[in-house]
């Protein structure tokens, strides 16, 4: 069964007017009720995201600054500890030198005193030995001469003997 071909370009004024009215009502209703809410929600979300990003960036900048400050302090502390170590090492070396010098001085002093004591003892011993030797020589000489040697003679003889002994060419 063939039917009469319909005209798709047929214009209906009432449909036209109805569509205009309905479309305008839709635009007004959506413009009052829907889009402000959706756009406000989107704007609030954008603002929230922006705020969160800014907060995160501020926190990151703050953390970076703190890290730099910490690194600076750490470097200063390391430098301070190095300086303290150097000073301690220098002080230890200086103290060691002082102790060693003091010890050496004391040792030299003791050696000098010991030398002097030895020299004194040697002199005393030599003097005693000389005295004893002279006494013994006089006693021997007395026996040989068979007479008593008076103390004045003894003294004179000793001095002569010592002088003779101290004479280098003898």
């Amino acid at each position: 069964m063939l039917i009469a071909a319909a005209d798709p370009l047929a214009f209906n004024f009432y449909t036209f007017i109805t569509t205009i009215v309905v479309c305008l009502v839709v635009v007004v209703v959506l413009g009052l009720v829907v889009w402000p809410k959706i756009l406000k929600g989107l704007d609030e979300r954008d603002a929230k995201i922006l705020h969160e990003i800014e907060s995160a960036e501020a926190a990151r900048a703050s953390a970076m600054a703190k890290q730099k400050e910490f690194e600076h302090k750490l470097a200063a502390a390391l430098e301070e500890s190095d300086r303290m170590l150097r000073e301690a090492r220098a002080a230890a070396i200086r103290l060691g030198d002082e102790i060693r010098a003091k010890n050496e001085s004391e040792l030299a002093d003791r050696a000098r005193r010991a030398g002097e004591e030895i020299e004194n003892a040697r002199r005393t011993a030599v003097a005693e030995l000389e005295a004893h030797a002279s006494s013994l020589a006089i006693a021997i000489a007395g026996h040989i001469l068979e007479r008593e040697i008076a103390p004045a003679d003894q003294k004179r003889l000793v001095e002569q003997s010592l002088a003779a002994m101290n004479t280098p060419n003898r």
């Binding site: 109805t18 569509t19 479309c23 839709v26 959706i38 989107l42």
Partner: peptide, 29 residues
């Protein structure tokens, strides 16, 4: 005459408004 497209335009508009009101409700903070 009430044309089919008149009713469709009106009905679709009502459905659209209701759907978008529902969507706006969910989009509100």
């Amino acid at each position: 005459d009430i044309m089919l497209s008149m009713v469709t335009v009106l009905g679709s508009a009502i459905v659209l408004v209701l759907l978008l009101i529902y969507a706006a409700k969910g989009s509100k903070t």
